[in-house]
Design a protein around this nucleic acid. Sequence first.
DNA 1: CAAACGTGGTA
DNA 2: TTACCAAGTTT
Length: 302
Amino acid sequence: MQQIHNSINRWYSRNARDLPWRRPGVSGWEVMVSEFMLQQTPVVRVLPVYEEWMRRWPRPQDLAAEPLSEALKAWGRLGYPRRAQRLHAAAVEITTEYNGEVPRTEAELLSLPGIGDYTAAAIACFAFGERTVVVDTNIRRVHARLFGGMALPEPTPRASEFARAREVQPEEHQIANMWNISVMELGALVCTARSPKCEQCPVFEQCAWIAAGQPAPHYTPKGQSWKGTDRQIRGAIMAILREHEQAVPERSFLNDLAQESHAKYLALEKLGSPLEQRERALAGLLKDGLAVADEDGIRLPS
DNA sequence: CAAACGTGGTA
DNA sequence: TTACCAAGTTT
């Protein structure tokens, strides 16, 4: 096992990407912002938004002082705007409850909005050097192959996976912390979901999946639906709201846009979604607090 | 616990 | 072109 630890950590030291949130001396806030943005989102899309975000709001209290609408606009097209909402809410809580300092323990981090098991462990480890067991989709996949001999991990994480993740960790604190990021990076760059680059893998010789003859996945991925979903309509509505400083009349979203041909709302018009669905999507955004309604119409929340 | 939640690149 | 996938969290 120690050989595997050494191989992957050595691989990381030579192959790790130079990312802004990995620079020596980064603040807890920098790591935290990166982790929020990286949830379900590729690094290349995060980079430009992250740079502008940190330039504008270098501390939690800087973001906390802004209305939510500014955070949602700066979030742009990163996706899952509720992450921006929760990051803003977390910044407010850090400002009021933690004197503007990002907490360093997993338990405290876990209590903040938008921070679950993975993000709490990641911030505690990467920003503060706390000893944690980080388990993300990359690490789950590497473990499934290297130790489990399977092509992919189970669709939903099992308790046994977390137990195994703890068991395979190096004993020494510093080595274990590097192991967290090393395995994650290996999964992101080499042990990828589709067409893994096994010829580049530092633990090819020890891999249980290779030894088993690279068996195919024992299940077929469920797939994420998108076309014609409420999510698509919500995204289109949010895109419109981000572009309008003033409230947008509610009827602009609910009328038969195809016939009225409002050029401004082309994004919704092209979707040709049923009225009922547009109503449901808008109601969902209002319920989630990602949009608000007043006498003038719909706008981003202050 | 399954489902909902955005977006754009890649095969 | 369709489908998968990317540093998950919440309900």
